[in-house]
């Protein structure tokens, strides 16, 4: 649920960014969350233009259509059911955009020691990588890196923040 909220939030952010930049039209596709505005009053001289959706194959496009992260349990690196679903959707998406290469970043919460958490983050990133490879993604398109506990996504020392910081994040290269 948290993940879906994040995705919607990212989508909303993206749309608002586009709305303020609407003369940038280049025949955007209707993939995912792109939107079209128009006028209903034909007699007025208001021009209509379509708001461009995310560039297909871009990180924004991935965020909107698949999501850019999966979460893990405390000191765990196995993909949970929701993380598996996200990774499966990621594999489909990667197959649609064969030129895209991806880095999977592994992260940990702050409740561990620095060096172990770097190793744990690497193991989490590789859980995603291994599953993608099992789903047929060419391993040459995938890189992994870990930042351990050093780059939290959510601030604060709460259970909720820790849960969201135990993550693997997909970055389009």
């Amino acid at each position: 649920m948290r993940f879906k909220l994040l995705t919607m939030f990212a989508a909303a952010l993206f749309l608002s960014a586009c709305a303020s930049n609407s003369d940038d039209t280049a025949g955007g596709s209707n993939d995912g969350a792109s939107a079209t505005t128009g006028t209903t009053d034909q007699s007025s001289s208001v021009d209509s233009s379509s708001i461009q959706g995310p560039q297909p194959g871009s990180l924004e496009h991935l965020v909107v259509n698949v999501g850019d992260r999966v979460f893990f349990g405390y000191d765990q690196s196995d993909l949970q059911a929701e993380g598996q679903k996200t990774t499966e959707a990621l594999a489909v998406w990667l197959n649609s955009y064969p030129s895209v290469t991806l880095t999977v970043e592994g992260h940990a919460d702050e409740r561990g020691t620095r060096e172990y958490n770097l190793a744990l983050g690497e193991r989490r990133a590789n859980s995603v990588r291994d599953y993608l490879v099992a789903l047929g993604v060419n391993p040459n398109r995938l890189q992994v890196v870990s930042f351990g506990k050093e780059r939290p996504a959510v601030l604060g020392s709460t259970e909720e923040a820790w849960a969201q910081n135990r993550r693997a994040v997909f970055v389009v290269n």
Binding site: S77, E115, L118, N126
Partner: peptide, 8 residues
């Protein structure tokens, strides 16, 4: 430590 393929 060197980390490779999920193994440190």
């Amino acid at each position: 430590s060197l980390a490779d393929r999920g193994n440190t």
